[in-house]
Simulated assay, not measured.
Amino acid sequence: MGIFRDIASLIYGRVLDTRNVLYDFAIFRSYKIKVPVISVGNITLGGTGKTPLVSYIASLIAEEGGRPAVVSRGYKRKDENKLVVVSDGEKIIEDAELTGDEPLELALDLRERARVVCDSDRVRGAVYAAERLGATAVVLDDAFQHRRISRDLDIVVIDATAPFGSGKTVPSGRLREPLHNLSRADAAILTRSDATDRKVEIVDEIRKLSPSCAIFSARTETRKILRITGEGLDSEPQETVFFLFSAIGNPASLEAQMMREGIAIAGSKRFRDHHKYTEKDICEIVAKARESGADALLTTGKDAVKLREFDFGMPCYRVKSRLVIDDETAFREMILQAATGPEGQASTPS
């Protein structure tokens, strides 16, 4: 079976390279919208820490008086082809079935600081955000391969603990497209850079592929531990023993983060990324938690938006993480330069 996967990967990579050439030579059209666009995406499958970065970028723009909008596909929502306004900056649709888990997590995290729109057609979603919601800048979530929309800044998020997906495209490896396409990136963010000793090697590889690419190192830290309904812990996190469960792209990184920060984890349970929880799942989680001797359950913000309807019978909390970028000043300047018009002011949709 391995040889067939390798052949499939080779064909898939060639198809994507051909598609990229067609965009490079404007045979396939990229649409330019009326406000600046910043794209955040991956070159590999799996969780890289992209969602905290999208939230961070939108917050930076809002802090400077801009009106950012996040535009996401809304993976595994009820109808991915339908345009859904998850948040207009005031009202939030708190239904993960309609919005998808990550867009709803972003909307609840950003609140009035950003609009959030779901649409598999990113061009339509971005135009709607600019023209109907008054967005002055658009942040595209998971859009490195989505070249139908032109962007002013193309950011790739790379997990420093597993950077290049074994060098092979899917299905043999974890690359979404051949690695040399990193040459398109304007900036690369090395997440979880504190968990590897290969950072210099990774930076050298990126430099070979994209000499002008700005490279930043980042790490994820726990900012707060909150009940899934919003309230905080009654005691210090280190005084509570948790049972950790999640349905995210890289659960091992979350588990390692908890360990580094001294948060006691009695046991854990992993589900597939974007898993839709059932009563049976909850019963299993609670049973394993009680068996492990845990005082409470712990999960992620992405999972929490799908768990509010359940009665756990024991406290359930979520981790609220933040992204810490080493050269924050340079990163901030890069984002604000891309997100503002030629006069240094936030662009206004016409």
Score class of each variant (00 low, 15 high):
Ser72Leu: 03
Thr299Gln: 09
Lys288Thr: 01
Glu279Pro: 00
Glu105Ala: 13
Val116Thr: 03
Ala185Asp: 04
Asp88Ile: 08
Ser59Gln: 13
Gln238Phe: 12
Phe4Lys: 11
Ile225Val: 15
His180Trp: 12
Asp326Glu: 15
Ile93Met: 10
Asp6Ser: 14
Ser9Gln: 12
Val21Tyr: 14
Ala135Ile: 09
Ile285Leu: 07
Pro342Phe: 09
Asn42Thr: 10
Gly341Arg: 08
Gly66Thr: 06
Val156Ser: 07
Ser9Gly: 14
Glu112His: 14
Gly65His: 09
Gly293Tyr: 07
Asp121Pro: 06
Ile155His: 05
Ser217Gln: 11
Arg151Asp: 09
Ala69Cys: 14
His180Gln: 13
Cys283Glu: 14
Ile61Met: 10
Gly89Phe: 05
Pro251Cys: 13
Val116Tyr: 02
Thr240Phe: 03
Ile282Ser: 03
Ile215Leu: 04
Ile335Met: 09
Leu106Gln: 10
Asn181Asp: 11
Val117Ala: 07
Asp281Lys: 08
Asp326Gln: 13
Ser150Trp: 12
Asp327Thr: 03
Arg322Glu: 15
Leu10Asp: 07
Val200Tyr: 04
Ser347Lys: 12
Pro251Val: 12
Thr18Glu: 10
Val241Met: 07
Leu298Asp: 02
Pro237Thr: 12
Gly301Glu: 15
Ile189Phe: 05
Gly293Cys: 09
Leu16Phe: 14
Asp197Arg: 14
Arg308Ala: 12
Ser253Asp: 12
Gly232Ala: 13
Lys208Gln: 12
Thr340Glu: 05
Val54Asn: 01
Arg67Ala: 07
Thr220Tyr: 11
Asp109Leu: 11
Leu175Arg: 10
Arg132Ala: 13
Asp326Tyr: 11
Lys50Trp: 00
Ala330Ile: 01
Leu254Thr: 11
Phe4Asp: 05
Ala339Phe: 08
Lys76Ile: 01
Val37Phe: 10
Arg184Asn: 02
Asp273Cys: 08
Val21Thr: 14
Tyr277Pro: 02
Asp24Gln: 14
Met259His: 13
Gly134Cys: 11
Ile248Val: 15
Met258Ala: 13
Asp234Trp: 06
Ser253Cys: 01
Glu102Ile: 03
Arg184Leu: 10
Glu177Trp: 06
Glu231Asp: 15
Gly66Trp: 07
Tyr317Trp: 03
Ala96Met: 00
Arg115Ala: 15
Gly41Tyr: 06
Thr18Val: 13
Leu153Lys: 04
Phe312His: 08
Val70Cys: 09
Ile93Glu: 09
Leu233His: 10
Asp79Gly: 03
Ala185Gln: 05
Val70Thr: 08
Ser210Trp: 01
Thr222Cys: 14
Ile202Cys: 01
Gly262His: 11
Ser321Asp: 02
Asp119Trp: 00
Leu106Ala: 01
Thr348Phe: 09
Ile92Arg: 06
Leu108Trp: 02
Thr169Asn: 10
His180Phe: 11
Val324Lys: 13
Ala185Asn: 05
Gly230Glu: 10
Leu98Thr: 00
Asp295Gly: 15
Ser87Val: 03
Val127His: 00
Thr348Asp: 01
Gly100Asp: 03
Asn42Val: 07
Thr136Val: 07
